[in-house]
Design a binder for these strands. Structure first.
Lengths: 185, 185
DNA sequence: TAAAATACTTATTTACTAATAAGTTTGCAA
DNA sequence: TTGCAAACTTATTAGTAAATAAGTATTTTA
């Protein structure tokens, strides 16, 4: 099963968005490596904002499949897998998609913002639910409610993908382990 | 004491950097509101990277004065004031300077990166010291070492300035209070 | 097999961007 | 009062950006 041009554009766009930032890459950065013309990118995504929408939808799709795959796992394992996923983001020199969109927020059109908001709520709700589940099972400990804890975990881990660009690798593992130690009994 | 043109450029540049992102604003966005020509901006800062260096240095300067002013305060109050400072960032619709630079990291020249690194270490060290101090005084609790705790607090709070652009205001206060509750006895 | 949709390319436009060279004005110092 | 430096403006350039119109080849469908 070969990847379609459309799919390749989305994946490369996502890569550039998270490595360089939304306003730091151009259609030429996408068309050159794919050996197509910039007009071909416009054929699939008439405007850059359309591409941003597609990237956000792609992430929703990936996350849906991820959460389905994890549905039967223990809360503890869900959290660990989630944090490991961020570790792989860090290793590939990207930042998290939520942070990437957030810093460029004011250059995004409403249609993009809406998709990003929906994706983010998807993640926060998934985290909130696993935390509540973990609390009920006595696997987790926290004095805060589930959503607040979810926000704390999400913000800590996605900020780390950004912060370690500045401070260096070793700090990522520190933060990741610290989160696990803090919440898991 | 009136603000010099140079100072005005730095302040407006900082504002734009943190509201829109480094690659989302131009010299025209600076010169127009100040009612000068774009060449006047280049007179003070020949390249955009030079402006970025000046913005980073400005933040180091502000932080130095802040930490001097707080030197005699209790660790608990230092932390509270620090978090309140981020609250004001949030209210002015900006993101934290560390996160703003981090997402645009790969479009920054080494001279900018170095200044940002030094500023970030300044903040982390200040936080680490106040945490150690608080632990010694029995005002704080944490199972982690001081630097790790500092990283957790810093990443949580600066990510929140980004995250709440997406999820909405109320989540900022949640996270801020949650940090205080977690560490302060 | 004709036509219509798909997946592009060629070619161009409009707009903006950072950057610079060459003036001009103003104030101060010798 | 001359001269020189600081703080600009005027004017321009070279490059890049997103976007679009119009054409072409290939595949699909009726």
């Amino acid at each position: 099963m070969s990847t379609s041009t459309r799919e390749k554009i989305i994946q490369l766009g996502d890569d550039l968005l998270r490595k360089q930032g939304f306003n730091a890459f151009s259609y030429a950065d996408i068309s050159k490596p794919l050996q197509i013309k910039n007009a071909a990118v416009h054929y699939y995504f008439p405007s850059k904002q359309d591409l941003a929408v597609a990237i956000a939808l792609w992430h929703k799709d990936i996350f849906d499949r991820f959460s389905q795959k994890m549905a039967n796992k223990e809360p503890k394992d869900k959290l660990k897998t989630f944090l490991n996923f961020y570790h792989s983001i860090h290793l590939s020199e990207k930042v998290d998609i939520i942070g990437a969109f957030a810093t460029d927020w004011h250059s995004l059109e409403p249609k993009v913002q809406t998709e990003v908001q929906e994706f983010t709520e998807l993640v926060i709700n998934w985290l909130s639910e696993l935390i509540q589940e973990g609390l009920d099972l006595g696997q987790f400990r926290t004095t805060q409610n589930a959503r607040t804890t979810a926000l704390r975990i999400l913000s800590s881990i996605f900020a780390s993908t950004q912060l370690v660009r500045i401070t260096g690798d070793h700090d990522f593992t520190r933060v990741k382990n610290s989160i696990l130690e803090e919440f898991i009994n």
